[in-house]
Design a protein around this nucleic acid. Structure first.
Lengths: 131, 131
DNA sequence: GTAGGCGTTGACGCCAGCGTCAAGGTCAAG
DNA sequence: CTTGACCTTGACGCTGGCGTCAACGCCTAC
């Protein structure tokens, strides 16, 4: 398939696909006229990238997953490099959550001091986030 | 005082001060030779801006606080516009925390599926963030 | 005079992940 | 032949808060 079809099926823009290629995440066979030609495996790669991005990963983070799929594994997370990225990201997210909780407490304290009676409820509980 | 001294006393770069001025957050009287001249009140404004930025506010968010101080109030948070920014920010932070908790759960689930036994403990609890 | 430590404005660089034109080539349908 | 949908590369724009030159003026000390 060509880039337009891949874009539609993957739910991304053609610009994004060319960008991923430029970043070395995906590659494309070229037809005689210069058009990019993609396979079903490429669709799989792009959907993997997209799902990772939507969870807050960067394109750099996605590299090991793509490499893992390219290496023939069924899941992009089957390789130790991918697992390592997961662990790193988990720690990173935890750090951000802690930072935000600290900020929230500071801002809430300031708001409470400036305007007693303006407060809502408590910070979001971790139970809410679990699906 | 001139820009260098203000920068040292406020703990920011001169570039930052000129940027705040360009954004209309602070203003400076000009000496005969064109040098910016600041007062103690300006130092107060800059420290207010800095403390807000470190808590995750943008310069845009800081505007009402600066205006409040300029209006003669002792605290930048004494004005209703500032309080409104606090409320907005609080809600914003809560949203980000919820997003991160959701992501954390998703990533943890993926990690658990890809590598059973790789998990650490639970997500950070809200009690940790409160000083 | 001159070294050098202060100040001035202007403008590009950075980070990420693209959006959005610009200016064209390709190909099938009518 | 022409229209029009598709494709190509190249390059600037965007968001925020500055860092970092560049090229120059001011002022004091020696």
């Amino acid at each position: 398939m060509r880039i337009g079809e891949l874009a539609r099926r993957a739910g991304v823009s053609t610009r994004a696909l060319r960008y991923y290629e430029q970043q070395g995440l995906i590659t494309a066979r070229r037809a005689a006229n210069g058009y990019r030609e993609y396979s079903e495996a490429d669709l799989r790669l792009v959907t993997e990238i997209r799902s990772l991005l939507t969870v807050g990963f960067t394109l750099e983070d996605a590299r090991p997953f793509v490499a893992c799929l390219r290496a023939g594994h069924e899941s992009g997370a089957s390789c130790p490099e991918s697992v390592e990225v997961y662990r790193r990201k988990l720690a990173e997210i935890d750090g951000e959550i802690r930072t935000l909780l600290t900020r929230r407490a500071e801002v809430a304290a300031q708001l409470g001091a400036a305007c007693p009676g303006c407060m809502f409820g408590p910070p979001p509980d971790r139970n809410e986030g679990e699906s």
